[in-house]
Simulated scan of single mutants.
Amino acid sequence: MRCIALIPVLFLSACYVDPYTHAPTPAPTDWYQAGWDDAMSGQPIRSNLVIAHMHNDEKVDRQEWLKGYAQGQQRICDPKFLVIQGQSGKSFPASCETLPDAEIRRAEWQKGERAGFQESFMR
């Protein structure tokens, strides 16, 4: 009788896998892509401490992050893209605030915002 009771225990213990044994090793952070993603999500420029915390990686490559951020900023802060963002009801990206012509870009975004509001109001 005891043998029958031990069979399920043996089956269950044989299926146990230690979760730490097969943990994948994290890939190194692509700092260019991280900068691009931050700019495209409308985030302001961040300190190394914040970037390291966000990506769980102490070795921040600031130059690569800034290159990626600048490229993402150029894309998201394009006046035509800002009009579309305004029309869709999205807020003005904080990543565009540091540009020298931020007021002009904000005006483009506001044009889109007004057009989007009028369109939704007319429906």
Rank of each mutant, 00 (worst) to 15 (best):
C77L: 08
R75F: 14
Q63I: 15
S88N: 07
P100C: 06
K90M: 07
G86D: 02
S91R: 14
P79C: 05
K90H: 10
N56Y: 06
D57A: 15
D61H: 12
G89D: 08
S91K: 13
G72A: 01
D57L: 09
A102K: 15
S95E: 12
D101Y: 08
V83T: 01
E58T: 01
N56K: 15
Q74R: 15
D101S: 07
Q71M: 14
G72D: 03
D78M: 03
K80G: 08
D101C: 04
K67P: 10
K80E: 11
G72K: 02
K80M: 04
K90P: 08
W65R: 01
Q71T: 02
L82D: 03
L82G: 06
K59R: 14
Q71R: 05
N56G: 12
L66V: 14
G86M: 01
D61C: 02
S95P: 09
Q71K: 08
G68K: 02
P79A: 09
N56A: 10
K90N: 12
R75Q: 14
Q63K: 08
Q73I: 02
W65A: 00
L66D: 03
G89Q: 09
W65I: 00
L82E: 02
G86P: 00
F81S: 07
Q85W: 04
V60L: 10
I76D: 05
L82Y: 06
K59N: 11
E58I: 00
C96N: 04
S95R: 13
K67R: 11
A94C: 13
I84Y: 11
G68R: 01
V83L: 03
S91F: 12
L99N: 09
P93R: 05
E64W: 07
F92M: 00
K59G: 10
K90E: 11
K80A: 09
D57E: 14
E58M: 12
G68V: 11
R75V: 12
D57P: 06
D57R: 13
V60Y: 04
V60S: 06
S91P: 10
Q87W: 08
D78P: 02
D78L: 03
S95G: 10
I84H: 12
G68E: 06
L82H: 02
E97I: 00
C96K: 00
F92G: 00
Y69I: 00
Q74N: 09
S88E: 04
Q63W: 11
L82T: 05
K67L: 04
A70F: 03
G89T: 04
I84F: 05
G86W: 01
Y69D: 04
G86K: 03
E97S: 11
Q74C: 09
P93N: 08
C96D: 05
Q87K: 09
E64H: 10
G89L: 13
K80V: 15
P100F: 07
R75A: 15
G86N: 02
L99T: 05
Q74A: 15
Q63M: 14
L66P: 04
S95V: 00
W65C: 00
C96Y: 01
V83F: 05
D57Q: 13
G89F: 11
R75L: 15
V60R: 05
K67V: 11
K90F: 03
C77H: 07
A102N: 13
K59P: 09
Y69N: 04
P93D: 12
G68C: 03
G72T: 02
R75C: 12
D78S: 05
F81R: 10
F92I: 01
V83E: 04
E64K: 06
S91M: 12
V83Y: 02
Y69W: 10
T98L: 13
C77Q: 07
Q87H: 08
S88R: 03
P100N: 03
